[in-house]
Design a protein around this nucleic acid. Structure first.
Length: 149
DNA sequence: AAAATGGCTAAAA
DNA sequence: CTTTTAGCCATTT
């Protein structure tokens, strides 16, 4: 029931990218969008995650896709519209904490995550990282690095 | 069918 | 440094 092949491709691209997120880490919509080749569509990424299928029969569903690890650039989980699934954002925060991520709850109820600690922003998707020709790669290939004062 | 939102971001002021 | 503007496109009313 794909509305269009492109939409499906986008959907799968997002899911794949999200599944590549290592446990105990989080990333932003914008970064996901960038990794899948659509650096200008961060919102659609959110839309995709919002419409994640509940059918476990699907290749991608909210049970196989760690959508909880995907948050906004501010490292904060948007409370959506304060309605819809009450468990949504709260559940997401709980899931993150279950992963070992420290989620700070602000006074307004904003779930803030320290991107400095758990922010996972690889240059490219791990799956894509397999570059065929190792030209130019001298000694130091870098990958994910954590350096913060 | 058209208008309004939205789990956003990045750049300008 | 903070606040505002502009772009983007699927889902929803």
């Amino acid at each position: 029931m794909p509305r269009s092949e492109e939409a499906t491709a986008f959907f799968q691209a997002v899911c794949s990218a999200v599944q590549e997120i290592p446990p105990g880490r989080v990333t932003s919509y914008g970064h996901i969008a960038k990794l899948i080749g659509t650096p200008q569509r961060p919102r659609q990424v959110g839309v995709v995650l919002k419409h994640l299928p509940s059918d476990l029969s699907q290749r991608f569903n909210h049970a196989t896709v760690p959508w909880q690890r995907v948050i906004n650039s501010q490292g904060i989980i948007s409370p959506r519209s304060a309605q819809e699934q009450p468990s949504g954002a709260a559940n997401q925060a709980a899931a993150l904490q279950a992963e070992g991520v420290t989620v700070t709850t602000s006074a307004m109820g904003e779930l803030c995550v320290d991107l400095k600690e758990y922010g996972w922003f690889p240059r490219v998707l791990p799956s894509e990282e397999a570059d065929g020709d190792g030209v130019g790669e001298s000694s130091g290939s870098d990958e994910d690095e954590e350096d913060e004062s």
